[in-house]
Design a protein around this nucleic acid. Structure first.
Lengths: 254, 254
DNA sequence: ATCGTTCGTTGCACGAGGCGGAACAAATTT
DNA sequence: AAATTTGTTCCGCCTCGTGCAACGAACGAT
């Protein structure tokens, strides 16, 4: 199931697995969860009631759901980032300008997470939403970050997670990926061609803090028919890199 | 320290208490948490490592922090609400129009939680943020909801949580509160005068779904010196109720 | 209405495993 | 170099999380 975790609490693991099941089943009944996680109903019941007492799950008329308490902790986790305020507004701004999906991705423990995103007026059928996480090699936004991490850190991440594909176009060969990252570093921004979602292309620019460390990346994504020609190859890259530059100015004196 | 919880898993409770400590200490070291929660270091260590393996906590160089995985679940919890999209845009719109703090509050398990909020350009020093939760009697937004809950539900909530004060102005007398709720029902919107935060006043309007059930409330809050006279008593109430009406139209055919 | 089925909930007894304390190691301080 | 203080690991006790089974309630079908 998992890599041999050093020293972990079984009871907590089942708790977290129950939550994960609750997330993937979206909203669900006790027995369905027990069935999914493969533990007895009584166990699931006790865990869920413990969580419910603290509002981490809520019970509708018939089914259990994830509780809003997660939003409180999630919001707090996001606000630890000193630039969260600015990244929110830059995302909104670029979303207004382009009408496409726009997101700001940060890296934590080797995984990318969108801390803000906007659907834009065109309403791309993307499944990317706030809190969504992805492996860094699978998307333009991830690659933009990956390209600028310290080399040793980068290879540890690649070793740890490998290069599992997400679509047919995901880069799964290490050499190819590293070449792409070289280009991204030279060019200053990253492209992705259906590497994360079929039918979608993306442009992403890395964002740095005052020390020159990558702190995240800004990405614009949209369906192929709108992401082509000069708009895709010139206009959007300029827009994104420009927005990031502005972003960096506003956070420098924070 | 809690009301006699029916049948609950101790180990989970300590897990959640550790998370709560991690939240209130913002970012903290293992021993500090062990000290706060009053369990042995080894226990805290095992819990934290279990959480870290799943990205629910992340470890900086020196300290533990809440992980972004909470944002994933929090976002999912929020998106269960069919009107979440529209509430986000109405909040942004009103924030742009007023420059004040604007939020959309929903009720879950008798407690209010902001699923969206914007600080506005004036940057009120309010501590209200996404995921923040509050007792319904303590604020304009809460009262707007409370006023329109089924009577039996309302009294169960009041019984369960009581009327603890938050400021000197919080309504702590049940009769006074019920009178206020009557007025709110008649008037169609709610006021609060420093009942949640010293120095802040607020106007809130309830939002209903097609069945006439309260689904949340829209609130505008600001410092007293800007919340007075005609703006506070007429303009803002009209703005908020108008915005909610528009909101209700856009969700009716969803 | 009555019987079956499936749901959530509660007791019970067993033994896995969560717990604290101490020993350890590594990093900082005096 | 000695002394604190940090995170980590080991170990044995006994709590307490677990599965099973029994119970009751709510449907649905005959």
């Amino acid at each position: 199931m998992r890599e041999p975790t050093g020293d972990t609490i079984k009871s907590d693991e089942t708790l977290l697995e129950i939550l994960e099941a609750l997330h993937s089943l979206d909203e669900s009944t006790l027995t369905a969860i027990a069935d999914e996680v493969d533990v007895s109903k009584s166990t699931v019941h006790r865990h869920l009631e413990t969580l419910r007492a603290r509002r981490f799950v809520s019970k509708g008329d018939e089914e259990y759901r994830l509780g809003l308490e997660f939003l409180r902790f999630g919001g707090a986790a996001r606000e630890r980032y000193p630039f969260h305020r600015q990244s929110k507004s830059i995302v909104q701004q670029v979303a207004d300008q382009t009408g496409e999906f726009v997101g700001f991705l940060v890296e934590e423990q080797g995984v990318g997470t969108f801390i803000y995103c906007e659907m834009g007026t065109e309403g791309v059928p993307s499944e990317a939403k706030v809190g969504q996480n992805l492996l860094l090699h699978q998307s333009a936004s991830g690659k933009a970050i990956l390209a600028h991490l310290p080399a040793e850190r980068r290879s540890r991440i690649l070793d740890q997670y490998g290069l599992p594909p997400r679509t047919d176009e995901t880069l799964t060969d290490r050499a190819t990926l590293l070449d792409d990252l070289d280009e991204i570093r030279e060019r200053g921004y990253a492209f992705a061609h259906e590497e994360y979602t079929d039918g979608l292309r993306a442009v992403a620019a890395p964002a740095f803090d005052a020390d020159g460390t990558v702190i995240g990346s800004l990405v614009v994504a949209g369906p192929i028919h709108r992401m082509r020609g000069e708009r895709f190859e010139t206009d959007l890259p300029e827009l994104v890199t420009g927005a990031v530059k502005e972003f960096q100015l506003t956070i420098s004196y924070a």
